[in-house]
Design a protein around this nucleic acid. Structure first.
Lengths: 189, 189
DNA sequence: TTACAAAACTAACGTTTGTTAGTTAGATTT
DNA sequence: AAATCTAACTAACAAACGTTAGTTTTGTAA
């Protein structure tokens, strides 16, 4: 049985507030009020505001990193790897849409080790993706576009999916995956 | 002759700082220091921090609104309207990349009239775009996907272009337009 | 019932924030 | 030369910030 700790509760509440206004516009008093307690009481469970942010962001960043590793290791065609990466993004978006807001918009407010390991994970992720795109082009599975343009157009769509999912009435995940793969790979014309 | 006022200078400097850390993480003292003056001196030229943000964001928002109006009024095929919208985004991105960061990430820190007129402009813009996509589908120029998926995938790519342009060594605008149109409309496979 | 631990509380701290008031130096106009 | 204007300055303000210290309440176990 999975019991939620008070710390996890704080991180969850905070992530919802961060999504609305961003890390710096949300005070410890705001978070406390949303939980029905006083700001000082938060410190019984967490070490500070920074820890909330880093827990939130690094948890999801690790999930992306592991997901990408799994895809890279598979012995399948580049284009099928891209398909799986799209599905990975959708799965994470569905499960952590609030955390993704912080990851996208507030990562630069991480400090020290947390900041540098996040940046490292992000660079590695992009580099893995870039390599797959290049392989796909060389194998003739993708058009001869500049790899960077392909990488960017897919990645920016996937990264902002969290903004758009949920206001579209929680449509079925499998339908969403099929549509996104089709649009991103085959285009719209 | 176009002389830059001190106010425009402040807005420009501020936009660069906002792009790095976001509106709330940049203080008036930060902005002043970047200009080599003291924070209080800024108030000889602007009415407050809010005005910097709203000038920055609304200027660009109006440009999008006008550009969309022009495209809508044209008597051309839906797919060519989409092509022109893509080019509109690229033009604005090239000319206002710092302001676009604020527009995307800090619009919710606008207040009162500025906030509501921004939100209104944004909704109108999306609605115009949505209608064009629907017309394109009905005319058989676009595939029979859910219009919302098409709208989202194009718009999210265009909206985050500012993050990606410039670290890619300022490639030629016309080349960029051609590539983006091709990738977004025809897909990558 | 008592003892203990978890989690809330009140009060306060030192900083930083956006902003205002009043002043001063330098340039331009009369 | 005197007057005006522009744009900087110093000093200070009240409010909000993250955080700490010490205390009290609450629930569980002995």
């Amino acid at each position: 049985m999975k019991t939620i700790t008070r710390k996890e509760e704080i991180v969850t509440i905070a992530s919802q507030l961060f999504k609305e206004k961003g890390y710096n516009a949300v005070s410890m008093r705001d978070i406390a009020q949303a939980m029905g307690i006083k700001a000082a009481s938060l410190y019984n469970h967490i070490s500070g505001k920074q820890q909330i942010l880093s827990t939130l962001i690094l948890t999801v960043a690790v999930e992306f990193t592991n997901g990408m590793q799994t895809v890279v290791a598979k012995d399948i065609r580049p284009i099928d790897k891209i398909r799986e990466i799209i599905e990975l993004h959708i799965d994470i978006t569905v499960n952590h849409s609030e955390a993704l807001a912080a990851l996208n918009n507030d990562w630069m407010h991480l400090e020290n080790n947390d900041l540098s390991s996040f940046v490292q994970m992000r660079e590695d992720y992009e580099e893995n993706f870039r390599r797959i795109v290049k392989e796909g082009i060389e194998a003739g599975e993708l058009k001869q576009h500049h790899p960077e343009v392909i990488l960017f157009s897919i990645l920016s769509t996937l990264r902002t999916l969290y903004l758009w999912y949920q206001k579209r009435g929680k449509l079925d995940v499998n339908v969403l995956k099929k549509d996104m793969v089709s649009v991103l790979l085959n285009g719209i014309t």
